[in-house]
Design a protein around this nucleic acid. Structure first.
Lengths: 205, 205
DNA sequence: GCCTGTGAAGCTATTCACAGCT
DNA sequence: AGCTGTGAATAGCTTCACAGGC
């Protein structure tokens, strides 16, 4: 079953929202209110996820959580490689190290020899040239790019070369990758400029 | 003229890409290659932006930059308020303080008295209760939320109350705001989980 | 009556296909 | 010949409207 990207995003949010709060069952309109989407959207999403509820009691939270986890997670979890251990990279490392059950940053890489071999937040930092070897050794399945714009494409190439199928890119440049690799762009500066544009537009109206 | 959100996002990228590199003119397929979108998409976007080129020489970069700036920026610039001066807030402060010409984080706010009154990256930190007063005084037009999930809605309410029309939200919770306020969600953990899901899916196929 | 499940409609975004310019 | 501009077609996503169950 293939689930569209936007639906996946919402499923992640649903799971997170249900994680807190010990409800036994939940109605689509309740979950919708929490997630800020319509009740129909919730029902569609859960239908797409192959999950169903009952008219009387809505959705059984525990079962829904199981189904979402089945869809979203891999039982063995994921090991991620962080490329770029500068300011941003270190922030991300501490951000991600609040243990996510299933995703662990297993190794960090940097081109700067001064940063190599240090251990930060329980994560060893290697020379970026070791990426292919370590990726195989540590069973890395996802990459996180936190290098300056100029080195981002090279980092992506190295990750692709190492067989990674998913990349989270914080560098403010579009990456060129083969189609079977998913790149999720997190472009903070663009997000800020977008907000600025809409704030301006709102004032003009 | 109202420009769809997705188009705005790409226009921001186009401007950024054209900023580097001193080209005099550019063809849609070139810009498309840089931005990783099709040439038609570029032409549509520029058409939507009310800009036109010539078959002979493509688009004149200097004029295009002017047009994009006219659409995206406000001549007086924007003052932003950062709410939440924890780990994430401080990272963002230093990230944004690499001077963006038109957007400046003019004040920071936190509920923790220990953080109030400090000056970080040239930005004064106030008690969050002063937000309405300072927002008016400093002509704040956009808000950045970097507080823990539990306080995010309160921060959003305070910003809305202060008349802000655009919010950049880093807290991993959907915000409930009136429809004239644009909320741009930057959900890093969700992005990571999304990548993980697709990496898993890729392996399964 | 109030809920879920879902075909069909509606809306938004992207791509096709080609006319028109130089 | 090679480019831009754009109506029309297509694809993707969301909402409507309502049938069916408890």
């Amino acid at each position: 079953m293939i689930i569209p990207a936007k639906t996946v995003e919402r499923l992640i949010v649903y799971r997170r929202l249900l994680g807190r709060g010990k409800r036994v069952n939940v109605f689509s309109h309740e979950l919708g209110q929490l997630a800020n989407v319509t009740a129909v959207q919730v029902r569609r999403d859960l239908m797409t996820a192959g999950f169903s509820g009952s008219p009387r009691r809505g959705y059984v939270v525990a079962d829904l959580m199981d189904r979402l986890t089945e869809i979203l997670d891999r039982p063995e979890g994921h090991n991620a490689a962080l490329v770029g251990v500068g300011n941003l990279g270190l922030s991300l490392l501490s951000y991600f190290s609040v243990r996510h059950d299933r995703i662990k940053v297993a190794a960090a890489f940097d081109a700067d020899p001064a940063k190599v071999c240090r251990v930060v937040s329980g994560c060893r930092c290697y020379d970026v040239r070791e990426l292919p070897a370590r990726a195989a050794e540590l069973d890395i399945s996802i990459g996180i790019i936190a290098v300056p714009a100029g080195s981002a494409q090279a980092a992506a190439d190295a990750l692709v070369e190492a067989g990674i199928k998913g990349i989270l890119n914080f560098a403010p440049v579009p990456l060129r990758t083969p189609p079977e690799v998913l790149v999720e762009q997190v472009d903070i500066m663009r997000a800020l400029e977008k907000v600025a544009h809409f704030a301006k537009r709102q004032r003009e109206e």
